[in-house]
Amino acid sequence: MTALFWARKAARAAGETNQMQNAQIKALEKRQRQQDIDQHEAQARLIVIWFVYVENTDDIYVRLSNASALPVGQVVVTVSRADLNRRTVFDVPYLPPVENFSVEGLDVIFEQYVDGPPQIYIKDYPSDLLTVAFTDINGVRWTRDMRGKLTELVVDQ
């Protein structure tokens, strides 16, 4: 009887140990998946696009930033207003690693899409108003809108 008692106790302890180890393995796998995602998105998260309104003027400037250490290629800046059925696309061969990059002529076009003095809040604009698509150093294609939403583009092969 005593042997049976200790055998049950050992089996229960082994089961609890297995549960703890399974939980630890799941936590490690989850952490590894997040690290993989972070590494995959590392350069793309450092590419941004926005516009700057100069107060007391009608001047608007569109800016791109590549805060990574390496350039990105096949850059396409799109200014569009689905509600007005208007769209303009600018192709930029590459975006070097700089804080403020200006695409010649983009500021003028962007002003035409805003229709008058710009709103103070970005949320007042359609989300597709200003986007940038690019290919990172690993060959992955991304798009980012002016609100910061980053999306990986899946290319059919």
Rank of each mutant, 00 (worst) to 15 (best):
K30R: 10
Q19C: 03
D38T: 01
M1H: 04
A44Q: 03
S65P: 02
D58F: 08
F51I: 10
R144V: 09
N66K: 05
R144H: 01
P97E: 03
P126F: 03
D83L: 02
A44R: 01
I47N: 04
L64W: 06
T78P: 00
L70F: 02
A10R: 13
L129F: 10
R147C: 02
T88E: 09
A44D: 05
Q43E: 10
V52F: 15
T17G: 09
V77H: 02
T78N: 04
G73W: 00
R12C: 00
I122Y: 06
E55K: 13
G139H: 07
R63C: 12
A23S: 12
L70T: 14
F51V: 06
I120G: 13
I109L: 14
P126E: 08
M20P: 01
L106R: 00
M146R: 06
Q35I: 10
A10H: 04
S102V: 12
A14I: 07
E41A: 02
E99F: 07
G116R: 01
Q21G: 06
H40M: 11
Q112H: 11
S68M: 01
V103E: 13
W6F: 15
G15C: 06
Q43F: 06
L153G: 03
R8H: 14
V114E: 00
L28V: 02
S68T: 00
G105H: 07
A23R: 11
L106G: 00
Q43Y: 06
Q74H: 11
G148Y: 02
A23Y: 09
D91E: 13
V62P: 05
L106N: 03
K30F: 09
K149Q: 11
Q35E: 09
V92K: 06
Q21C: 08
D107N: 13
L46W: 03
R81H: 05
N18C: 10
A42V: 01
L150H: 09
R12F: 10
R33D: 15
Q43N: 01
L153T: 06
E55A: 15
F134G: 03
N56H: 07
I120R: 14
Q119F: 07
D156V: 12
Q43H: 03
D58G: 10
D59K: 09
S80H: 08
M20G: 08
K123R: 11
L46T: 09
R45A: 08
F90T: 13
W50G: 12
I25P: 03
V114I: 12
M146N: 13
R87F: 05
F110P: 07
D136Q: 00
D58I: 04
H40V: 05
F110R: 07
A133M: 11
Q43G: 00
Y113M: 09
D38L: 04
T88D: 06
A7V: 01
T57D: 09
D83R: 05
F134R: 07
D58K: 14
V155F: 03
V108A: 14
T131W: 02
T88Q: 07
A67M: 10
